[in-house]
Nucleic acid binder design. Sequence first.
DNA 1: AGAGACGATATTGTCAACAATCCATCGAAC
DNA 2: GTTCGATGGATTGTTGACAATATCGTCTCT
Lengths: 226, 226
Amino acid sequence: MSEAIIQTYTRADEAFDCLQTAIVKGDLIPGEKIGEVELCSRFNLTRGPLREALGRLESRGLLVRRPHAGVKVVSVSASELMELYRIREVMEGLAARQAAERMTDQEIADLQRTLDTHEQMIEEAQGQAYYQAEGDYDFHHRIATGSRNTKLAQMLLGDLYYMVRMYRYRLSTFTGRPHRALGEHRRIVEAIAQRDGELAEFLMKRHINAARLNIEKKIQEGELTI
Amino acid sequence: MSEAIIQTYTRADEAFDCLQTAIVKGDLIPGEKIGEVELCSRFNLTRGPLREALGRLESRGLLVRRPHAGVKVVSVSASELMELYRIREVMEGLAARQAAERMTDQEIADLQRTLDTHEQMIEEAQGQAYYQAEGDYDFHHRIATGSRNTKLAQMLLGDLYYMVRMYRYRLSTFTGRPHRALGEHRRIVEAIAQRDGELAEFLMKRHINAARLNIEKKIQEGELTI
DNA sequence: AGAGACGATATTGTCAACAATCCATCGAAC
DNA sequence: GTTCGATGGATTGTTGACAATATCGTCTCT
């Protein structure tokens, strides 16, 4: 019954979640050395589960560990962030194509309704970047799971998005092209609704490429500093 | 100044490597439940480092853990294996394109020499699948690192290849199209040498797609059972 | 004064014992 | 005979203490 839902959470899971959100939100500064005992007292944990969580986070690339030297949050350079977007481009392109082939009509309808609420949020917030970022995340999340490709969704949602979101929180000023992005989202969903996988892939790749170029331009103009 | 800095090996690293190779080589059967103490006695470890390694392996998707219930090696279905190849297709396509843009002339020359030795191995072994598999792995490994895309290489070499190799060991009979694969490898390297990233991406995607179709056909014909 | 070496200290890596939880077997009731 | 429930055993999760190692400060030598 509800037993299937109740996943008994272990201390290590708790530690993992705490650390992950702390890293993403920027509470733990990249490059800074962190002591295990400090982390334990900060999150009310003991070192056993903490070390297990550290192992998981290291394997996901969110932090690096040198034996006997401590852990530090990974610091990603601007060029590395651009590389992340290149990876997103091809992977989410695949996700969009497979989503067009496999999403149920129900899911597609939900997705379209979601875009409506996004549009409303944008108009209400009038430039507030946060909602746009959340809406964008929501959209890509649904496409990833809609691909029905377990490993693909796992890599996108478990690895890449957390690293990208790390930067969204940090440079709180988001890309700032909400209307344009929403239009691109709409066209992608349209292609998915028509079951045109090839077009969906093309549009998604172009969408992410545009976002990358936008960030790249702002960095070169000095508006964004990483 | 190379990374000759001896990274002190910790017990957890040792456990991680042992378990990973054991899973890949098939010493640990998918689906089977494994006790922690059994693993400890098998690899001469204590439970502390072992649990840390288990956390890493779980986060990489090589095994699943249910709290208080034990761990088991992940069992991937045939369709999921095909999904893995779809992911490889787009990611290695990107790797090939970036490799064409960024590999040094020296690396490309090395890569071409590597293919020569592969050809020799194939002729000598005359159908021995093992060498072909190793050569194939070697080739794709070099392309991934040659992309100079740290995260991309990490995802390919750290996640995907291990899951794919898991199956190569298990169904010891490999794809069995060594000459054809070698020819495709040669054309990819040729494109890289000419710095034609677009062509390299196209050829790499077609190469992996062909491998996927080959395996898919054999599965449908009943020659391969997963 | 600068550079290298040495040692103290604090931090990490490891271990073995304790507590919490699940699974299987056994028993009883329908 | 079958199904449901409880209890015992085994296994996992957690904890705190112990051992190994890197860093930092100090000292000496050039």
